[in-house]
């Protein structure tokens, strides 16, 4: 049995060059045409699945370049996962090997973060707004796995937010916060100061340590902490 499956597997990868003599001639029609259902199905399905992960990148690259790069990726990196959900995982890394312009790798990485945020398991938050009173300089925060901070020289977040209306990527420094509000992924563009502050807290620094390294006004601090609690971006302290 092993050899039949090996022949079949090889013939899919190598289509249309392999001999199909391990298969019976059909009672009507052409064997190669029938086998093409299997051989052509894989790139079609994987490309569709890729477009569920990467919504913006195909629009920026244009259809021709997207199919060239996406097609090469699914051909050269056959899926080893049981789920098509994981199909895009190594696409950014593949793009860097292909030496494509750095901005496309930035966008691919950004969209993968969105995808991870969408699928992350949310923990039940135990925090209420009243808990702000219990926060002191020694407090450390527990962030949801759906929360990401993204920094780039390209305005990937802004472009992603406008992805349904002729998006154009610009060379503009940008800081963004990605989180989930119930089932929806939210992207917020934030100030450099807030971004660095959140990065410190997420890395495990206490509030006091983060404020030592990153000065914030009392008003901005209270607004930020309130946002983290009310949107359940942090689930505990």
């Amino acid at each position: 049995m092993r050899s039949d499956l090996n022949y079949f597997d090889h013939a899919i990868s190598n289509f249309p060059d392999d001999a199909l003599d391990f298969l019976r001639p059909p009672h009507r029609g052409d064997l190669k045409e029938k086998f093409s259902i299997y051989a052509n199905g894989y790139p079609l399905r994987t490309q569709t699945a890729m477009e569920e992960v990467f919504e913006l990148l195909p629009k920026l690259l244009g259809e021709k370049e997207w199919h060239h790069l996406g097609g090469a990726y699914v051909r050269l990196r056959p899926s080893t996962s049981y789920s098509l959900n994981h199909i895009g995982e190594s696409f950014p890394e593949f793009l860097s090997q292909m030496e494509v312009a750095h901005r496309w790798i930035v966008v691919a990485n950004f969209e993968l973060k969105i995808w991870h945020s969408f699928h992350a398991y949310q923990k039940e938050s135990t925090l209420r707004s009243d808990d702000l009173a219990h926060i002191d300089m020694g407090t450390r925060f527990l962030f949801q796995d759906s929360m990401f901070l993204f920094e780039s020289k390209w305005n990937a977040a802004e472009t992603w937010k406008g992805r349904n209306s002729r998006p154009v990527l610009k060379n503009r420094k940008e800081y963004s916060l990605i989180f989930r509000d119930r089932d929806a992924v939210i992207v917020e563009i934030v100030e450099k100061n807030s971004f660095e502050f959140l990065t410190l807290l997420k890395t495990g620094f206490t509030l006091g340590e983060a404020l030592d390294k990153n000065v914030m006004t009392a008003e901005n601090l209270s607004k930020t902490l309130h946002h983290l609690i009310s949107k359940e971006i942090i689930y505990g302290i």
Partner: peptide
């Protein structure tokens, strides 16, 4: 059916001998 060998997954329902 089978869907792949040697860890590859063709994400298709392939016929068995």
């Amino acid at each position: 059916c089978w869907t792949g060998i040697e860890k590859r997954n063709w994400h298709d329902l392939l016929p068995l001998p």
